[in-house]
């Protein structure tokens, strides 16, 4: 366990030994899986707890009033900027629009009442189960992203001369999760977004290093292997667009 902690700490400062230790460990995949699962559970616990506290503190009716007020303010602001035009026709349009908007909000209020009236369990129990479900789902989301992108990158790394096995690749790239511990602070307004951006960029550096070490090649090729799936996807989309354009031209 001490060695794993040391490896995780080393990964944060892109220490080569940390990645090599992870790659060459006897049960490298298990180490990687543990890293992802534990970190995602920590991050998920914080986020789910915050969601739970927020949900317990709010009443559905109050939430509806807040939504209505927020949307009304936004619409009034848009109207102030002339988004709905000017003159008698625009006034008439605004009147009809607002009437339908209020009716839409009334549907929302009615549905909120139905949700409260027809749910067998009391609201705190619902909130607990929803938070628990959200928390338990976290490792699945993280593991699937890690595996999916790991396989995709490995395919391109192999094309670029990489020699990693699937286990080595997943083991070294699992260290990407370490900087993402910062995502636990994602719920803080404004600061949370900034912290998430830092975690992403830091994670990207760790991922490049992990791919390079697993494949025994330089970081330039590792970076190329990581961005290649996006380049190929973009090329495929462009090809599809060109194909559709070609069909349209032919049919004309």
């Amino acid at each position: 366990m001490d060695q794993l902690t040391q490896t995780l700490r080393g990964a944060l400062v892109l220490e080569e030994d940390a990645f090599v230790r992870m790659r060459d460990a006897e049960d490298s995949f298990v180490g990687g899986l543990m890293t992802i699962v534990v970190i995602s559970l920590v991050v998920g616990l914080v986020i789910s707890l915050v969601s739970f506290v927020t949900a317990v503190g709010a009443s559905p009716a109050q939430e509806m009033v807040e939504v209505q007020q927020g949307m009304r303010q936004a619409l009034e602001m848009m109207r102030g900027f002339g988004a709905f035009g000017e003159g008698p026709e625009a006034e008439e349009f605004w009147r009809i629009f607002i009437n339908n908007f209020e009716a839409g909000i009334a549907i929302g209020e009615r549905v909120t009442d139905v949700v409260v009236d027809t749910t067998p369990a009391p609201k705190p129990v619902v909130d607990i189960f929803q938070a628990l479900g959200q928390w338990v789902s976290y490792p699945f989301g993280w593991v699937s992203t890690w595996m999916f992108y790991g396989v995709l990158t490995l395919v391109f790394a192999k094309l670029l001369g990489g020699v990693a096995t699937i286990r080595e690749m997943l083991a070294t790239t699992s260290l990407v999760a370490v900087p993402h511990l910062l995502d636990a602070f994602g719920f803080i307004p404004y600061v949370g977004f900034l912290v998430s951006v830092i975690a992403f960029l830091w994670g990207l550096l760790v991922y490049v290093k992990g791919t390079a070490i697993a494949n025994r090649f330089d970081t330039g090729r590792a970076f190329l292997a990581i961005v290649a799936p996006f380049i190929v996807l973009f090329a495929l989309i462009m090809l599809f667009v060109l194909f559709v354009l070609f069909l349209v031209l032919i049919s004309n």
């Binding site: 189960f129 929803q130 628990l132 789902s137 699945f140 593991v143 999916f148 699937i166």
Partner: peptide, 15 residues
């Protein structure tokens, strides 16, 4: 546990 999303098990199965 209700509301759990077990998405992504397919890629694990593929490996």
């Amino acid at each position: 546990v209700p509301y759990v999303q077990t998405a992504g098990l397919g890629i694990w199965a593929l490996i």
